[in-house]
């Protein structure tokens, strides 16, 4: 009922406004169209000037409001390069933006029709066209040069000795896999996948798989200043590994393996101090529409020191061992089960 009232109210307002608007046109007829048009043109020309001032004041105000809400500085080597490039692009576009918008609104105000001057017949000028073809072309060349340089570093081969971690998306969470002591990830095949004891479809005939560690909630443990290469895949639909603090992103496509690498430069603990936010955490977000749980597809990224990382790694049991404890009777009790939601009995 209240909805109907609302609709009724809106229609009523429309009708009233329309009547007011019509009567203003009647006034025009009484005053004489031309006189009225002249007055209106003057008001509108002036409003364009007001609009411009409001526009720029609004931009500054918005900037002031947003600045404290923006995330912290980039936390990776590529991110620093990104931030620099962003600034250059912002300056180039910013200058063009202010220049053209000011001209647009200023011309509106300045060259409004007021009846005492004739417009200039000015239909073309090759000189002007040449200027505003070449200047943008040069600016674009600069942006492309800076951009491609950064792009080829970011997408180039990962440095030797980079840590490798596999990250796989599925509806609606991430799964990460670490190579274990042998430093190599074993083969996998999608037909082997089952949610009970082979999340990624590892091929158990490949011995390299035996020590691989799987974290079913997709947590990424990275080491400060050690390059990391992410091997990205998907089990079902397209997902996207979005690492906004590191300014990196790559799709996870079923049937295709994609890769990115970067070097984290700030640990989680350092970032907590820098931001003064006790709850600060690096997050991995799914950035490609993947279904109804898309918005909840989150994983935590921890950047730590080498010592912390080694300690953590030592506490982990390989996925195979976790799922086949009977084959490893001599194993010492495992410190922490990785995924508490899965009821895996680790101890005999």
């Amino acid at each position: 009922m209240s909805g109907l009232m609302l609709v009724f109210l809106v229609v009523l307002i429309f009708v009233v406004l329309y009547q007011v608007a019509r009567s203003s046109e009647m006034v025009a007829q009484i005053q004489g169209e031309q006189q009225f048009d002249k007055k209106r043109n003057k008001i509108l020309g002036f409003s364009m000037l007001i609009l411009m001032i409001a526009f720029f004041v609004g931009i500054v105000w918005c900037h002031e409001y947003m600045l404290p809400l923006m995330g912290p500085e980039a936390a990776s080597n590529h991110g620093v390069q990104y931030d620099f490039m962003f600034k250059v692009t912002l300056w180039v576009t910013g200058i063009v933006f202010v220049l053209t918008q000011v001209l647009l609104f200023w011309f509106c105000f300045k060259y409004q029709r007021n009846g005492d001057k004739a417009p200039v017949f000015f239909a073309h000028s090759n000189k002007l066209e040449l200027i505003w073809t070449t200047v943008p072309a040069i600016a674009m060349a600069v942006l492309v040069a800076i951009g491609l340089k950064a792009w080829f570093t970011m997408t180039g081969e990962a440095p030797k000795g980079a840590m490798q971690i596999e990250i796989v998306g599925k509806q609606f969470n991430w799964i990460s896999r670490y190579p274990g002591p042998d430093g190599e990830l074993g083969k996998k095949y999608f037909l082997n996948i089952n949610d009970k004891d082979n999340l990624l479809g590892q091929d158990w005939t490949d011995k390299r798989n035996m020590d691989d560690i799987i974290i079913p909630n997709g947590e990424l443990r990275l080491v400060k200043d050690v390059p990391v290469e992410l091997i990205i895949g998907s089990r079902d639909v397209i997902h996207d590994v979005g690492l906004s603090h590191f300014r990196m992103k790559m799709d996870a496509v079923p049937g295709i393996t994609s890769r990115i690498w970067f070097t984290p430069t700030i640990t989680t603990a350092e970032m907590k101090r820098k931001t003064g936010n006790e709850n600060f955490v690096y997050e991995l977000s799914c950035d490609q529409m993947c279904g109804k749980g898309h918005y909840s597809m989150r994983a935590v990224v921890v950047v730590e020191t080498q010592a912390e990382h080694d300690k953590w790694l030592k506490e982990q049991k390989s996925y195979y061992v976790q799922n086949h404890p009977e084959e490893f009777p001599a194993e010492a009790p495992i410190v922490a089960p990785v995924d508490s939601s899965k009821k895996i009995t680790m101890n005999k």
Binding site: T100, Y111, Q112, P119
Partner: peptide, 30 residues
């Protein structure tokens, strides 16, 4: 594709500057 994409900025810029010059010294009726 980066190169080709940014090239589009050039004809777009030409259009914008031409529009601005069109209203410059005009007799604008709002």
């Amino acid at each position: 594709f980066v190169l080709l994409t940014l090239l589009i900025a050039i004809p777009s810029a030409v259009k914008v500057f031409n529009w601005l010059t069109t209203i410059w010294k005009g007799n604008i009726r709002f």
